[in-house]
Structure formats: C-alpha cells, structure tokens
Design a binder for these strands. Structure first.
Lengths: 160, 160
DNA sequence: TATTGTTATACTCTATAACTATA
DNA sequence: TATAGTTATAGAGTATAACAATA
C-alpha cells in the first residue's frame, strides 16, 4: 500500500506506533462524554487553565482561530459559568479571561472519567510494558511541553 | 488541588501520564492541518478505512452520532471525492459506504504530516526512553484495539 | 492611525421530527 | 408495521467583513 522503505529509521517506527496509539485513544476517549461542554469549548478551558488572565486575541491565536469565533465561544462558556471575563487594568480595550471554580471542577471530573477509560486498557497490559510505557511517556511529555512552550514564545515574538 | 491519595496505584500513575501525553499530542497535532477535511469528516474516513462497505446506520452508531448528521457528512465527503456510496445487493434500502482512492491518499498524506510533528519530539528524546515508549505503546495498541473491537461486537449484539 | 473586541452575515456540523422507499 | 435513509428545521461553531471603543 505504501512506498518501498529500505531500513526504516528508529524514529520512523516510533512515530508510526505513537500515531496509531493516538488514533486508538481518540476512539476510546470518544466514549467519555464531555457534555455539556463541546470539543471547542474544552480546548478553550485547557488553554485558560495554564494561562490565567490571557486576552481574547492571544487565546484566538492559541486556538489557531479568529477573535469573533473565540468571542462567541467565551459568550457561551461564560453563560454556562465555566469562564469569567474581566477588564485589563493596563489597557481598557483588553478582556482578561479566567477559568471559574466550576470550570476547574469540570476539568478535574472529565480527567477522572477519561483516565478510567485508560485504566481499562492499562490494567490489561503486562506490567513490564506498562512500566516501559510510563518511562517513555514521561520523557515524551518533557520534550513535547518544551517544544510547545518554545513555539508559543516564538509566536509571541513575531506578533509583538 | 486534588484530594489526598495514599499510595497511588501504578495504573493510576500510568493513566495520569498517558492522559497528559495525549493532551500534549492534541496541541501538537492541531498544527498539522487536516484541510479541506473537517475533524468530523476525518473520523468518518478513519472508520471507513477499516470497515469497507459499512452501512449508514452502523457508521452513525460508530460515530455516536445520528443518521441525518452522518448522511450530510457523507454528502460532502462524496462531493469532495473522498467517499463513495453504493447500493446493497441484499437490501435495496441500505447504502454501502466506501473510501475512494483519493480518500486513502489523503489519509496517507495526513499521517505523514502528523508523524513529522511527532518526530520533532521523538528525535529529541533519549534513545533508551524512546525504545521504552515504543515497547509500551505496542502493548497498549494491542490491548486497546482488542477492547474497541470487543465493545463494537457487543454493541452489534445488543442492536441485532 | 493602529489595536482590541464585538456585531453582521454566511456556511458547516449537529440534533430532533417528519417524510419516502423498501422489507 | 418496522427499518434504512433523506429532507426540514433549529441551534452551535467557524470564518470574513464591518463596526465601536480605546490607545
């Protein structure tokens, strides 16, 4: 089906396996309902969780979306009580966005339900492979978080 | 932030780490554009890839969606040339759905771009952890695929 | 004049209800 | 009558363009 590949690189194998695992996880997590929060709203909350007081334009950039769409998303999240708007003391044009207590509680609950789905798989794995998985994923998280952070900083540099 | 947890179980740690890794990956992959295919359309194509000739109702169930929404999704995928509709020989009410050659080519290209994003992380990991990750994820994929397959079969049992 | 955010409008995705065709 | 699929209608998400308020 795919083109001929002589001696696949180790990183290529790793990328293929990780890609497959992620697609399976997407199916698995599709079962842990995020209601009453949509996927888009969830992305907003995940960003707000780590960027207290971010303004609307930066949030739109982080979503790779536009200010009008993001504004409407925040309208509904605010109406639902998961997000709060405030005015910037420095610049009265700017809106400052916060995750409410209810918003944080919701994320915590959702993570609990998703991790339960995960455990149903992890429980059935041989212990040695599970330990290897954790060790590998911890390193993966370190590198991925650093990369995402660096890219965000670079994007701010270009914008500012 | 979270409740007191005496002696966390190994599986709990594994679930938390996997959950974190998945959230990071979601951000990372958000950068590999799926245009001109929406997220919903992509889910349809991923299911059709492994279920040749599935009918519309079963596809809707697999998406945890409804027949009308799924029908419209297929309208657009068909118009774009990624999906084909056929009539069932056994029951003329049923539609049989297929991924077209263009559809398969698109998935292959998307996977290539996503795996490139992944490699940018994997390349920066220590070799030992990368090997551990692959070993762990292979076992994860085996168990997850089996679980998803079992659940699908059980769902068919309840419906039929 | 430039920037931040919102409102106006149009298209996609989603759901429920009503409908057509087949079994 | 029951089932497979589509059409009708309404609400949410998204984008571009036009606008208001502030810098």
């Amino acid at each position: 089906m795919t083109a001929f590949r002589p001696r696949p690189e180790p990183d290529e194998v790793a990328a293929r396996v990780t890609s497959t695992a992620a697609e399976l996880l997407e199916v698995l997590w599709g079962r842990a309902s995020t209601a009453p929060v949509s996927a888009s709203q969830l992305r907003v909350m995940l960003i707000l969780e780590h960027h207290e007081g971010i303004n609307l334009r930066t949030l739109a950039d982080s979503l790779a979306s536009t200010p009008p769409s993001t504004s409407r998303l925040c309208d509904r999240l605010q109406a639902a009580g998961f997000v709060e708007r405030g005015v910037s003391p420095a610049d009265r044009r700017e809106v400052r966005l916060y995750l409410s207590g209810r918003g944080r509680a919701f994320l915590s609950d959702l993570r609990g339900r998703r991790e339960q789905e995960l455990r149903s798989v992890l429980d059935r794995m041989p212990a040695a492979q599970r330990i290897a998985l954790v060790q590998g994923l911890e390193a993966f998280c370190d590198v991925a978080a650093a990369r995402i952070h660096d890219d965000d900083a670079a994007a701010r540099g270009r914008t500012a």
